[in-house]
Amino acid sequence: MTFKTRRTLWKCLWTFILLIFFVISVYPVVWMFFGSLKDTNEFYTNIWGFSTNPSWSNYAKAWNNAALGEKLINNIIVTVGSLLVLIPVNSFASYAIARLKFKGKRWIYMYLLLGIMIPTGVLGIPTFTVALNMGLNNSHLGLILVYAAQSIAMGVFIMRSFFVTLPKALEEAAIVDGCTRFGSFVKIILPLAKAGVVTQVIFNGLTIWNEYFMANIMITSQHLQTLPLAIANFTGQHTTDYPVLFAALSIATLPVIVIYVICQKSFIEGVAAGAVKG
């Protein structure tokens, strides 16, 4: 077997493996979308196939019944707001921990890492109590701060691992250029850790976008509800209206997929640009 045929064989094998993973990953999303176009009867009788009589009425129903437009805006406010808080907060701390020498650094890092090990879901009610005492219940700001806080442990950990891989001489070079330390961090170091930032955006953004538990505890006003709260409307005590639920979920998932596709591009470019010879 020549080198070339072996290579081609390998390539076929890879493509085949990828194809399998691709199908089992993509089909569910397509299935959800198909489901949203079926009526209830077809949903239960034609389970795996494409809708024979696709109808968009479920979307209209979902949109109107749960006032999804308003909730979508709320969800964007909360998600973007949380990212705007958590990205700088995590980046600052992880930069200091990764690249600066100071007393107590080790303890600060260990302290923040504790967050990875605390099952936050169980502490929903105490978290609510804290927010309540600060007057932050039933507000988007409260949710934003809680989400940002919950991201800190993992975020600092991830960002730190990106910062430590950068060459040690970077700051010195920047200071020679006449930047202050904060300036060199913002202008030189942070752009190089763009991949870390994007990692946080896609992970935390997604978690926050779909977060239900804390939102349900903290939000009491109808007009402040986020998308997952509205989507829970379709889950009844005994029965769930799946086609409408799936329509609502398709609406909720679409922006996430679009953002990932956009991020993915800049992510990979960002990483390539940040690949400094060490």
């Binding site: 907060v89 930069y95 600060i108 936050t120 800190i152 442990a153």
Partner: peptide, 13 residues
């Protein structure tokens, strides 16, 4: 640099 993270983390976690 660490302070915002420590404050948020302490209060809400």
């Amino acid at each position: 640099m660490c302070l915002p993270a420590i404050i948020l983390f302490t209060i809400f976690i």
